[in-house]
Amino acid sequence: MTDKHIDREVLSVLREVMEDGYPELLDTFLADSENRLLELRETADAKVLSEVAHSFKGSAGNMGAVRLAELCQRLESDAKGNSPAQIAKLVAEISSEFAQVRPEYEYERQDALTQ
């Protein structure tokens, strides 16, 4: 099932492929996402913003975080052409989206550990 935020099919395939490594994969995604969010909030350099957004987009896409990947794509594409206020708004949207999906990934992790 795909909702607007998470493609559950991607998670299902990852769980199957990763087996016992699945919880660690989720831990890594959550920790990396926190670090990338911090970088996005703390930099004003358009090139760095674009690079971090590109990296974040890739990991979000790989983990089925569809909306998060879309927002990161927008930041990656628009980092050089947007005003600081527009960039701040997009970073806030990315942060908000991650806050929304994070509990789902934490639940997935707990669920995988109890299987």
Rank of each mutant, 00 (worst) to 15 (best):
G21I: 10
P103V: 04
A69L: 08
R74K: 14
R102P: 00
M18N: 10
F98A: 04
R74A: 14
S12N: 13
Q86A: 11
L37A: 02
V66Y: 12
E42R: 15
M18V: 08
S50A: 06
G64I: 02
L14A: 09
L49V: 00
S12L: 13
E19S: 14
E42I: 11
S12C: 11
A65W: 06
L14Y: 05
N82V: 12
A65Q: 04
D78S: 14
F56I: 06
D32S: 10
I87P: 01
D111N: 12
R36H: 10
R67F: 12
L71H: 05
K80V: 10
V10P: 03
V101I: 12
E93G: 00
F29P: 02
H54K: 12
R41Y: 04
D32L: 11
E16S: 13
A92N: 06
R15F: 01
D78H: 12
D27K: 13
F98N: 00
E42Y: 10
K89G: 13
D32I: 07
A46F: 05
A46R: 13
E108H: 03
E24I: 10
R67G: 09
H54F: 07
R36E: 04
S12E: 12
K47N: 11
G61H: 06
E34C: 09
T114G: 08
M1G: 14
L75A: 02
R41N: 09
L40F: 03
L38K: 15
S33A: 08
L90A: 08
A69S: 11
M63T: 03
A79I: 02
T114R: 14
E106L: 02
A60M: 06
K4H: 15
T28F: 09
H54D: 06
A92C: 05
V17Q: 07
K89E: 11
F98R: 07
D27T: 10
S77C: 11
K57C: 04
Q110S: 08
A92P: 03
L14H: 01
S95H: 08
G21K: 15
Q86L: 10
V66Q: 15
V17S: 08
D3G: 05
Q115N: 14
A53S: 06
E97C: 12
A60S: 08
R102D: 00
S96P: 01
Y105W: 01
R109V: 02
A46G: 04
L75S: 02
Y22F: 07
R15L: 07
T28V: 11
S96L: 10
D45A: 07
A92F: 00
E104M: 15
V17T: 13
A31D: 07
E97T: 09
E39V: 12
L11C: 04
G58Q: 01
M63H: 04
A31G: 06
A60E: 02
G58F: 02
E51A: 13
L26W: 01
G58A: 06
C72F: 00
S33G: 07
A85K: 13
N82G: 12
N35K: 15
R36C: 07
A65Y: 03
K4D: 15
K80Q: 13
K57D: 02
R102W: 00
V91L: 03
E39T: 15
D111G: 05
G21T: 09
L71K: 09
V48D: 03
L26Y: 00
T114N: 08
Q110W: 07
A112N: 01
